[in-house]
Write a protein that binds this DNA or RNA. Structure first.
Lengths: 148, 148
DNA sequence: TCCATTTAGATGCGATTGCATGGAGTTGCC
DNA sequence: GGCAACTCCATGCAATCGCATCTAAATGGA
């Protein structure tokens, strides 16, 4: 078990950082250029929409997305201020609440998707064949799971 | 040329975001845990060290790293305040200056490397075979280059 | 030479992030 | 029931980011 990463490992690392930076930048840019909210809002809206009528608890969102708790709390503040979600008291647990998407939220999410999709296509789809994309997804999958 | 990204494309996108977030987080965490400066400092120190005795211009650094100009300017402020680089007037061009690494900078960079390397190894190396890492690097390479 | 344009870099300022902490409610154990 | 430990979420504060703008210096003509 060596400490010295192989050359290929270091290159993969460096390109992972760079490719993500580039891809994220272009997607955020596309959303901004279209006068739409940032990507993080999309994720919240999508999760809350999937969660259905009752919405979901912040801590569930926190796990679904990759966000620190304090960070999520304020992100929800902003989205709520924009009227796209609402916080409702939670009957089961007096500490928390439920975050539910509003009609305006559903609308904006649907407006965001085409822009988002086009940007993903430009950043990834047009640069890789279907097979390559599948391979990339599979390899990246190995970097995601738990093992400390 | 479709707008609708294929399933594999979307998955690759999502995992790219997630894998990078995870990998970056664990590297930053390792550095912080070791009481060392953040990753961005490493990159600056490495580039300035590579640049040799005279150092390099901020705009060169800006291109080598993936950083906005205003952002780099203040990053260098901080690293300079810590004593790891110094700004020297530039004879060729009165607008700019040269950023050169100091001895303290070289020292701290050398102290950072083992921690950084171990973290890369844990985040990437131990999860992928050499061949997989090479393939990942190659695929990510396609996402990096220019084409608008 | 003189002036408009461009380039290098810094900076004011509002928005976002990270960290540490706080308050409120719940749970487990006696 | 009573209390310590824990979970859920918010928030004060400092650091950092992003944007727009500013100054100074170089450049390119006419």
């Amino acid at each position: 078990m060596s400490d010295k990463p192989a050359e290929a490992t270091v290159q993969a690392w460096a390109r992972l950082m760079k490719a993500q930076h580039r891809a994220l930048g272009s997607v955020e840019g596309a959303l901004k250029a279209a006068g739409l909210p940032p990507l993080a809002w999309y994720d919240v809206l999508l999760e809350t929409e999937r969660a259905g009528k009752d919405g979901l608890r912040p801590f569930e969102l926190e796990r679904a997305m990759l966000l620190a708790q304090y960070n999520l709390s304020r992100l929800v503040d902003r989205i709520e201020a924009a009227g796209y979600v609402e916080r409702r008291p939670c009957v089961d647990d007096g500490r928390g609440h439920l975050i539910a998407i509003t009609d305006a939220g559903r609308t904006i999410r649907r407006r965001m998707w085409p822009v988002y999709a086009r940007a993903i296509e430009a950043a990834v789809g047009q640069r890789l064949s279907g097979k390559q994309a599948a391979t990339l997804g599979e390899l990246l999958g190995h970097l995601i799971d738990e093992p400390s």
